[in-house]
């Protein structure tokens, strides 16, 4: 088992050497288990600083068509939660892994047993996109005891009162959803990234990472320019993982492009 997950995430932000840390999202078990391991490895080789690993769920309400379809395909390929934990175990030696799982995936086995399994395989953080802070007390306490970062999300619709509450409660980083919507590729950029990020930063003392709808290197660079400490790229990479005959290679190339876009200017 790795060191404290919360510390490991902090160290990964500190050591990224980029303008914003690069945090690719991948769907566990997509297109199938073996190839998803290759996708994870390609993310690492391409220059990822942390990895978000999605657990496929039958009814992913926060996800748009690409990730929803990938989850459906992963489940159809027979992927179980234990398979995704095994996958995590194969990756956590090399990179900080943050697992993204829906509430029912966490609650069904029970919070304590589920977190024990995360800790066993060395997962550093957990994101539960359908668990607002009103419902998260018990999970927060259980994660804290294990040094696992329970990463909370804020959205453009989040009020100031909520933002401060969430900013104080989140661990590892604050996940800023850049659009009012589900995950998915979007053209152009959200209208006002900078105010969104400034608002978020004022509400927390952990790094702030931007996600949802970032699908081009230009959009990632714009997020870095606007002050994001981390950039999460999901649907674009998931699409690549599924569409090419060698999805992992395609993901690796894209991750490398994002890494270049986020690289610090040579002094």
């Amino acid at each position: 088992m790795s060191a404290d997950g919360i510390e490991r995430i902090a160290a990964a932000f500190a050591a990224s050497g980029k303008r914003s840390a690069l945090m690719p999202y991948m769907m566990g078990g997509y297109p199938d288990l073996e190839r998803s391991l290759a996708v994870g490895e390609a993310c690492i080789a391409g220059g990822a600083d942390m990895l978000e690993l999605g657990v496929p769920f039958s009814d992913p309400l926060a996800d748009g068509p690409t990730i929803h379809a990938a989850a459906t395909a992963a489940l159809a390929a027979g992927t179980s939660v234990s398979d995704v934990l095994d996958l995590a175990a194969a990756l956590t030696g090399r990179i900080a892994v943050i697992m993204m799982a829906y509430a029912n995936t966490v609650l069904t086995p029970g919070i304590e047993p589920f977190l024990d399994r995360l800790a066993d395989v060395g997962v550093s953080g957990l994101i539960v996109p359908d668990l607002p802070f009103e419902e998260s007390d018990e999970l927060e306490r259980a994660a804290e005891r294990r040094g696992i970062a329970l990463v909370a999300l804020v959205a453009p619709t989040t009020t100031d009162v909520r933002l401060h509450e969430i900013g104080a409660r989140t661990r590892g980083f604050l996940y800023v959803v850049s659009v009012t919507g589900t995950t998915g590729e979007r053209s152009g950029g959200p209208v006002s990234l900078r105010p969104l990020l400034e608002r978020a930063k004022a509400a927390t003392n952990v790094p702030v990472a931007l996600g949802f709808g970032i699908s081009t290197a230009d959009q990632a660079a714009a997020a870095a320019d606007a002050g994001a400490d981390g950039v999460i790229v999901g649907s674009r990479l998931v699409r690549a993982a599924g569409e090419d005959s060698d999805g992992a290679a395609a993901v690796g190339r894209l991750v490398a492009e994002f890494a270049t876009a986020l690289a610090a200017p040579v002094a």
């Binding site: 309400l61 359908d130 607002p132 419902e135 619709t157 009020t159 509450e165 959803v177």
Partner: peptide, 30 residues
């Protein structure tokens, strides 16, 4: 319980059941 939750007179829970398991985006709308 947080200040945000103070004014609440519609049941959110029925025994252990109910709640609001939705993305943060929807919480202000609820």
């Amino acid at each position: 319980m947080s200040a945000v939750e103070a004014r609440k007179s519609v049941p959110h829970r029925y025994g252990p059941y109910g709640g609001q398991y939705v993305p943060e985006t929807l919480m202000p709308a609820l």
